[in-house]
Amino acid sequence: MRLTPGTAGEPPSPPPALVARLRAAGCVFAEDEARLLAAAATTPAGLEDLAGRRVAGEPLEHLLGTVEFCGLRIAVGPGVFVPRQRTAALVDRAVDAARRVREGTGRAPVAVDLCCGCGAVGLALATAVDLAALHAADVDPAALPYARRNLAPVGGQVHGGDLFDALPGDLRGRIDVLVVNAPYVPTAALHLLPPEARLHEPRTALDGGGDGLDVHRRVAAGAPAWLVPGGVLLAEVGEEQAPVLAAALTACGLHPHVHEPEEDGATVVTGSRPTT
């Protein structure tokens, strides 16, 4: 969650009783959350409803209908995976890769946001770099309307389905930047997630299988056929998972690189398709 402290021009401080109620429920940023909820409510009854749902553990972003990500306001809603701030590192690497395509070839890159959820990564990428085309895909039908809403301003095309099966066939061998925010929490560790994730976000967006890399292996296996020569796959994983994913990319014929982990522990692994 990313909350911005109150600044000039914002609504007055929320009622102390609401702040105390949220703090008692374990909300670390109780005053900021109370301010946001009060601004979102149109009636006292509406505020009571929002406060009750937040105290019960519903994600703040679901209640507000938006989340800030990479300086953008992203639409989200109940049952949809909320973009994590650490994923900004994945966006940064994807932006660098897209810019290298433009510098090296003189053309705008074709990008795909796979496991797109609400489309936050694709939107951030398309906002930072002029793309020839942006496609996004996810298996979760609840996420697709939000992805379409978020990506419409940048001309992104959203497809429903399982990984590469969802993509138009004419993209095969044409993707320059394949960014993948796939689930990487090991199944046995799901119970360690905060309740607002476990109870309110889709399991398909969290559960990465035995070691957390089941989906990543499937992506790695299919990527060489979909990437242009020199194209790159980018994925976010945990630091301890990075060497395992790098080995999987190598086994699939891609040249891997593990980037230095961020302070929050998120690590980006890339795999490039050989040019010859």
Rank of each mutant, 00 (worst) to 15 (best):
R100P: 00
P141S: 11
Q157K: 14
V158T: 13
A137T: 05
H159S: 11
A142F: 03
L60K: 02
L151I: 12
L63I: 10
L163D: 08
T87P: 05
C118A: 15
L50G: 04
G65D: 11
F164W: 14
R35Q: 02
A147Y: 04
G52C: 08
T66F: 13
A128C: 08
L47Q: 14
H159D: 04
L144F: 06
R35I: 02
A51W: 02
G155I: 11
R174W: 07
H62D: 10
D130K: 13
A34E: 02
D113S: 07
V129S: 06
L37Q: 00
R102G: 10
V76P: 09
A111C: 12
A41I: 04
L90I: 09
P44N: 07
E33L: 01
A75V: 06
G79V: 06
L123D: 03
L47D: 09
R172Y: 06
R84W: 01
P83H: 07
Q85W: 06
V101Y: 00
G117C: 03
V82S: 03
D96A: 14
Y146H: 15
V101F: 01
A45M: 05
E103N: 11
R53A: 15
H135F: 13
A88W: 00
V76I: 14
L125P: 01
A40Y: 02
D92S: 13
T42G: 15
L114D: 01
T105I: 07
C70P: 03
A41R: 09
G122I: 01
G122Q: 02
G65L: 09
L178T: 12
Y146P: 02
F81D: 00
L60F: 05
A97S: 05
G122C: 01
V121E: 00
E48A: 15
R107C: 05
L114Q: 01
G160K: 03
A147H: 03
F69H: 08
A136Q: 04
Q85D: 13
V76K: 05
D32T: 04
V95L: 00
R100D: 13
H62T: 08
R73W: 04
R86S: 13
V177P: 09
D96M: 09
A143H: 06
E103A: 15
A142V: 12
A51V: 15
P78F: 06
C118P: 06
D113H: 07
L60G: 05
P109A: 01
H62K: 09
A108W: 12
L36E: 04
L163M: 14
R100T: 08
G161D: 12
A126Q: 01
R174K: 14
F81Q: 00
A51L: 14
D32F: 01
G117S: 05
G161Y: 09
D176K: 10
L63G: 10
V154L: 10
G104T: 12
L123S: 03
A56F: 07
A147Q: 04
H135W: 13
A34G: 15
H159K: 07
E33K: 01
V158N: 04
A41D: 05
P83K: 11
T127E: 13
